[in-house]
């Protein structure tokens, strides 16, 4: 059919030539593939990356188990519902991720990041000594705190353990160190400050970016010290220091136990004993959170606030918890 009568039939030759070209392409493809994964290429590999004693491969298993790619993208592949995670570690640093991941439903505050830096492992990984230095080194964290601090996020809280969180951070540290050949392209302008680029209704944008909004918590905490009753001050502190990211004001379980109805109740502990949630217990749980762990919760998730809050602030938070207990009863 493909041969017209009276002309020499070349169809067979054409087909053999097509298969030959295909074979050549196959060889090129395999050669390029081999070049892509040689050690001499110098690409980062997860085998050599660890974060605070957790290795990146374990983190990859967590990343897959929670199907993070089902909302986010990684090297641009995934679901386009949430931001790309490839270079996140380099932008926000470990302390911000430590503060965010256990309670992803809310954006971390500056104080919450500061709390994480109290852990020498985290501070060591970040390579900084204080929160000021941290925010300079990781401008992504500074921007997030300025614009989103203490707002609700649209990510659901995930039941991540301390090991899961650190594994994930190790994985993100690896992906962040990968050479992705110029992707994503670096923006030439700063979208936040560009006038014509405002995509959020102006009122909302001002509210989110103005320094008043960002530091509202701090001001309320400072100014209200004398006037407001201790419980209100405690509430402001709880928001400011990121407590509410993990502890609900009702009986729901987020990352840690809910505070509603907690005060005065009897709490079962992991060692089988139980304790009455009075002032002394609550203070101890803030200052030395791992001394007594509530049954059903992993130990070592919460950091100690002994160096972060003074005694008066701890008392105010306890007063706030007490007020929640009274409301629930």
């Amino acid at each position: 059919m493909s041969c017209v009568e009276g002309e020499p039939c070349v169809e067979g030759r054409k087909r053999r030539r097509a298969l030959l070209a295909l074979g050549l392409m196959g060889i090129i493809f395999l050669a390029l593939s081999a070049f892509s994964f040689l050690d001499s290429r110098g690409q980062a590999v997860p085998r050599t990356v660890t974060y605070a004693g957790h290795d990146a491969i374990a983190g990859k298993r967590v990343f897959q188990a929670f199907n993070c790619m089902g909302c986010h993208t990684m090297v641009g592949n995934g679901a386009y519902f949430a931001p790309d995670l490839t270079k996140l570690y380099g932008q926000v640093g470990p302390a911000w991720l430590e503060a965010f991941l256990p309670s992803a439903g809310a954006w971390p505050t500056r104080a919450a990041v500061q709390v994480q830096l109290a852990d020498p492992d985290v501070a060591g990984e970040a390579g900084v000594t204080g929160v000021e230095e941290y925010l300079t080194k990781f401008p992504g964290a500074a921007e997030r705190i300025e614009r989103r601090s203490a707002h609700a996020s649209t990510m659901p809280n995930l039941p991540l353990t301390k090991d899961d969180v650190r594994g994930l951070i190790a994985w993100l540290k690896y992906t962040s160190s990968m050479n992705t050949e110029g992707w994503p392209p670096a923006p030439r302008v700063d979208g936040v400050s560009l006038r014509q680029a405002k995509s959020v209704p102006v009122a909302q944008q001002t509210a989110a970016t103005s320094p008043d909004a960002a530091s509202a918590g701090t001001q309320a905490a400072a100014a209200g010290a004398a006037a407001a009753p201790a419980a209100a001050r405690g509430e402001a502190l709880a928001r400011e220091y990121g407590c509410v990211a993990c502890h609900a004001s009702d009986t729901r379980r987020l990352v840690g136990p809910g505070w509603g109805g907690l005060y005065g109740s009897t709490v079962a502990l992991t060692d089988g004993s139980s304790v009455k949630a009075d002032d002394a217990y609550l203070v101890e749980s803030i200052v030395q959170p791992n001394a007594k762990t509530v049954a059903g919760f992993p130990s070592g998730t919460m950091v100690s606030y002994a160096e972060i809050l003074d005694r008066e602030q701890v008392d105010a938070i306890v007063a706030y918890i007490r007020s929640l207990g009274e409301k629930a009863q």
């Binding site: 087909r15 097509a18 298969l19 070209a21 295909l22 392409m25 196959g26 090129i28 493809f29 390029l32 070049f35 892509s36 994964f37 290429r41 690409q43 980062a44 090297v75 641009g76 592949n77 990968m178 050479n179 992705t180 050949e181 110029g182 992707w183 994503p184």
Partner: peptide
């Protein structure tokens, strides 16, 4: 044949930014 003559190496359009070299 045309599918493979274009698609065999065309798969490389997935290898732009995943950490594989720039020649892709």
């Amino acid at each position: 044949s045309l599918v493979w003559l274009s698609g065999l190496l065309g798969n490389a359009h997935h290898y732009f930014w995943i950490g594989t070299p720039e020649f892709w």
